[in-house]
Design a protein around this nucleic acid. Sequence first.
DNA 1: AAGGTACATGTAAGCGGTTCCAAAAAGCAA
DNA 2: TTGCTTTTTGGAACCGCTTACATGTACCTT
Lengths: 343, 343
Amino acid sequence: MAGIKEVAELSGLSIATVSRALGGKGSVSAKSRKLAQDAAAELGFVLSYAASSLASGRNHNIGIVVPGVNRWFYSSVIDGASEVLIEAGYDLTLYTTSQNESHRATILTDFLLRKRLDAVIAVSLELTESEVSQLLAIHRPVLGIGGPLPGADSLRVDDFDLARRATEHLIGLGHTRIAHIGGDHEYDSDFKLPGTRRSGYQTAMGQAALPTSEAWQRSSDFTVQGAYATARALLGEGLVRPTAVFAASDEMAIGTILAARDFGLRVPEELSVIGIDGHELGQVFGLTTFDQKPREQGALAARRILARLEQSSHDAAVAYQPVAEEFPTQLVVRSSTAVPAVQ
Amino acid sequence: MAGIKEVAELSGLSIATVSRALGGKGSVSAKSRKLAQDAAAELGFVLSYAASSLASGRNHNIGIVVPGVNRWFYSSVIDGASEVLIEAGYDLTLYTTSQNESHRATILTDFLLRKRLDAVIAVSLELTESEVSQLLAIHRPVLGIGGPLPGADSLRVDDFDLARRATEHLIGLGHTRIAHIGGDHEYDSDFKLPGTRRSGYQTAMGQAALPTSEAWQRSSDFTVQGAYATARALLGEGLVRPTAVFAASDEMAIGTILAARDFGLRVPEELSVIGIDGHELGQVFGLTTFDQKPREQGALAARRILARLEQSSHDAAVAYQPVAEEFPTQLVVRSSTAVPAVQ
DNA sequence: AAGGTACATGTAAGCGGTTCCAAAAAGCAA
DNA sequence: TTGCTTTTTGGAACCGCTTACATGTACCTT
């Protein structure tokens, strides 16, 4: 396999100039650049990342850690990040933590720390303090989405506020019997979000002086099928039926709508449903939701982390000041919520 | 930051021995190994991947190329592969091609070729011959899932057979008016699969001497919402209604079921629907489908490619004999298909 | 024309490990 | 013990680039 040396010989330039020409760093005359590129093309030569990384200290590689790639929110974030990173010439290395508890530790110690990554984006990852400091110890930018990483940058939506406003949307329509289907720690230990959204709901209900029975607060696993089962239980148990449900994710909201149909309940006439996420499927079901544009969150996260990289290459001395950015969400009113029918 | 040299000093061993102890290669006495590990732990030292790669030629990094990470099939494949790879101590670098046509070329030339990857798994990627040879020229194992890569290993389901059997399932139940909702080149140029499944359908219909009008063969984009719209058109246009629909993916089958509900058509009494995939949501809808276990496909693909790596490290001289493996699928009969009601 | 500035290029010293090779240590049979 | 095999170990030559530094060249200014 041809190396940079062969390219140098073929082009009649020095190794250094070829390196600069191909790597796009220092200054090279247009003529030399063309010479180098032509020679490289002729030999089918591409710079070796391993060698470049070793010599330069830059990897052009960003790590992204997600609980799993199979949930819509996560895959959307990845998709958004991936596009931006490829555009910028960066590789994206993916780590999934939730398949296997033991992976988590491995990933944190064996993978993330091995200096292969220029930066890390962590999605919905709740880390212990020692884990965070371990991560920060590698002196690479770290950015958290949907999970606060003390000491690192973060990009997040205000889950509490979101949940409260979703609930208030229902209250504003005149609903008083409002149930909540949230997530559960049991299903995902790395995850404070379910609790945060639940308290948003409770706060809104409390401020409106509306009752919130235990029976109206259910936990599920953030999937359509999980929430479907949960909602069937909620709607079918013969207790006083709620007239509205606030689900902590669109997938769960859709599960709820499907369950409602099974009972012949018309949405929104007999049951209003609101979700959170902005899932594409929401359209099909006419779901009212708070769109949190995960794809754009991923893209923005990637941009922010690239900026960090840029910045730290300029003035390495500047102390790392973590930035917490809030990502705006948007209420999308469709046809799954309405004024409750008079009972 | 401590390097291997510091570890050597602290442990009183030579650099070479520390390298062997920490990298787990050559032979090291138990005592030396412990010495090295303790010293490394004390200094918070981890081997640098970049340096290891450069020196050894192994990257411990597998690339996986998918059209996008947002479609259930792909994300499942990734999930399966990710688990196996992490377990084996490999990083997984993710490339998505479909967001932007120009990315495709970039990925092929700039990323895949830069010697950072030990092997590549390509999912549903149709490459031109020159692209394939370009890929193979890097002398790394390449494995294709769901898209044949001439000259490379492949793991695939027999899409033609699958489609034919799905159609035959409906025919076997007594259906004669069977429509097909497939994919379309227009939505995804890298993709022969829609056509393959369509011809499976046509063959089955032909062999049973059943009519297949143009109007009963629709194209959609493999999403629930896309197929929902397509199915509404199919079912609502006032033409003779099919009594069964074979959708080329579960997501499209679900879209079809949702559309049927809109028209008050009961499934399966008035409309049978069969899909392909094994999507989790299938349960909620009682969807009959051919389960092709994408998660397991991903895991198996990862195992196969790791075996290739293993093998080529032993006997590098052996000529590369591409292996085409067929992945078995399984018909899962649920409640979305039944004998047609007498008309 | 002299002096300065900005750009272009080459030389060579790393980057931080791996691994070949030879030598030393250990194990074992006679 | 001795002689021979096997296991451990250290020395040092790379792996294939990047980049600081020095040098050379071109272009302005005055």
